[in-house]
Design a protein around this nucleic acid. Structure first.
Lengths: 189, 189, 189, 189
DNA sequence: GGCTAATCGAGACGGTACGTCTGGTCTTGCG
DNA sequence: CGCAAGACCAGACGTACCGTCTCGATTAGCC
């Protein structure tokens, strides 16, 4: 007999959170503003989520993730592929939404380590998959040593691009070039 | 002609800021609390600094920097040296003060890009120097290719260690090991 | 539908204002102190009252009024009655609470004329009534001319006692005596 | 040998105080603003005056007193003279400067009783003199009883006009008329 | 004509209160 | 019972003055 939780309200809040965090800083998002723009009362938010971080977590975990959705077609040229892909991720993360996303991730992690870990996992997943696939291909082609850890490489590139975006100094084309060159030299057979 | 600015008050505020930011989050630092713990009136703070970010910037630029003061002796074994040094930086940054410092850097950058850039420069400087020196030594020893960019390597390692610390997942010993191995393979002659 | 205004908070603030204004000067009353001693947040005060004067106005209009609650029994001797009553009012107003009340009235009037007028009306009312009644009795006894304006007499005595209290020079017994004598001579049949 | 106190600064401050108190409320006058508009440093003010009240006191005691400088020619008609004079004082005090003056007197008295008393004396003096002279003339003319106390009458009229001005309800022409009539009946031979 | 001691301007300083804003909790009544 | 509306306590925000405190820079007499 009790009235069930309003899915419309829930979606509305999550969507408002996504919009707000992309528009400003994570810290600049207020529960009050969220309620306002979601057309929902504050209490409804406080009833269902324990913290701002939790809302953002839920929003990111089930929403479309702008900024890190890098997907580059693969060719036979591993150098060209990695270069294209790292460039795409790097510039993608340097865009305002990318920066906002990265900063929000940091902020959430400050509040809730576990959630931060999960979010990072979720966000890095497609990237790791792509890298893993390309590296695997390289190994099949006998261009890449069989013992390289694709995950480590993905994490390195994510860290580099993210950190550069966070401190507002996107990687230059030369730096990207140099990084890919050196990377390949390190993993080449 | 008027009474000159009190250097004691200035130092007191900067010191209070350093302590506060190491103790909590940058966002959790309030001007009011700062004034209180510095034994200074709010107005004195507002008279001399335009923003919280500016205070932190000044505090970091001229204070002792906890967490990033990595200095490791050099031997003839470049692998051992890089490994020891990367381990030290990585664990140093993973310590609470290191994380606080990195987060504060991000927060300041969000408010004031230019200041963020300057701070990053200041913090990365000793690290870059160390790496540059070790790489140069390696080149003299003919272990390292003459064309490698020491700055790029330093930035890569800083980014990796910082990002890992920020998202609360410090680099594992294996990951450090793997990274150094791969790095050396990429720069070896 | 929202939560209704808390009557408890309202009363608490008004009571705190009455106490504060009697204890010190109107100017010495601070909103912050009021909130504190009323156990109410500043915002609650600012939400409901536009100014300190408005709070005092409301407090005086509906509270017990110390200092001006002069009520003297009537006998057949109009001179004795007027003398007793004027003495009572005069000394009542010269007491700290009376002075505080009068000063507060002036201060409120300086801020909000209309409110000041209303308060003055309210405070003078019982006095006017008493005088009107006694004068009417005198007219019935054929001791007082039928054309005298009781309101004018009340106002004169209020002004004299109030002004004397305000400038810190309470009326002497002789002055009271002289005033009543002269007054009676002016209104006697 | 030391440099003597600057009379120019002193006059400048007193003049600024007179202007400020006539322009606004006594409470609205700030030492800082006074210093500013007098072209004097705060310290110079604090060096020579113990309080705002003291400055105002000095300013009023030796300056021209706007608002209470009532001076009406005397004729042979005591009723006409008193009426003209009471009307003049009443309307004079009801003018903004008069109200400001009266309110300032109250405020000063709240801080410093003795000073308030002195100021009141000073301000009432010309009024008392005028009344005393007119009453004396009336006694010579055998229109006024020989035992009336001119000071009491002056004080009564001052109190009535001042209080009315203070509470923002100037005496009406009818009230003035009524008061003079009744007064004369009380003092007539 | 230099010496010297208090005055003067300027304004920094530790404070207190201002009136505003937002955060997170609570309390209503409608649906 | 969910929800919107919004009152409530809490406390930080940045501003305005307070009264005290240095600072040089004058500016008289007195030597």
């Amino acid at each position: 007999m009790p009235r069930p939780r309003s899915e419309a309200a829930r979606q509305s809040v999550l969507e408002a959170m996504r919009a707000a965090v992309m528009a400003g800083t994570y810290e600049s998002v207020t529960i009050e503003g969220l309620a306002e723009s979601a057309g929902v009362s504050k209490q409804t938010i406080y009833r269902w989520w324990p913290s701002k971080a939790a809302i953002l977590g839920e929003a990111l975990l089930e929403g479309d993730l702008p900024g890190a959705d890098v997907s580059v077609p693969m060719s036979d040229d591993i150098r060209a592929d990695l270069h294209a892909w790292f460039t795409a991720m790097s510039t993608g993360l340097a865009r305002p939404e990318g920066v906002a996303l990265a900063r929000a991730l940091i902020a959430v992690t400050a509040t809730d380590h576990e959630l931060g870990r999960a979010l990072n996992e979720r966000l890095a997943q497609p990237i790791r998959s792509w890298v893993a696939e390309r590296i695997a291909r390289g190994q099949v082609d006998e261009q890449v040593r069989p013992d390289v850890d694709a995950g480590a490489i993905a994490d390195q590139l994510i860290a580099m691009a993210s950190y550069a975006a966070l401190i507002g100094q996107p990687l230059s084309a030369e730096r990207v070039e140099e990084t890919v060159t050196r990377l390949l030299r390190g993993i080449a057979r």
